[in-house]
Amino acid sequence: MSSGPGLESLVDQTISVITNDGRNIVGVLKGFDQATNIILDESHERVFSTKEGVQQLVLGLYIIRGDNISIVGELDADLDSTVDWSNMKAYPLKPVIH
């Protein structure tokens, strides 16, 4: 089996997960499996709205089921620190419609 797009390289890194219901959860990847189930430590949700800037919601240790994951992004810490999230207004992402 050739090396597929596993998440090995992202373990112990901060990742940004987009879920199928359109939420954005940021945390440290602690584990994953074939079905893209993931363990996220120190996780928090970034809540987007058009009324106010991005709100951070502390969640803690989360296990997210793979079926509900759309995207796992590697968060670039340097890049992230240049973004003024507290003043960023945007519509929440739309849910995935299968």
Partner: peptide, 18 residues
């Protein structure tokens, strides 16, 4: 502009099902 949610992501994994 419309989707700033992934501004600080340079590499990503996309689940085939979506």
């Amino acid at each position: 502009e419309k989707y700033p949610h992934m501004l600080s992501v340079r590499n990503c994994f996309i689940r085939g099902s979506v």
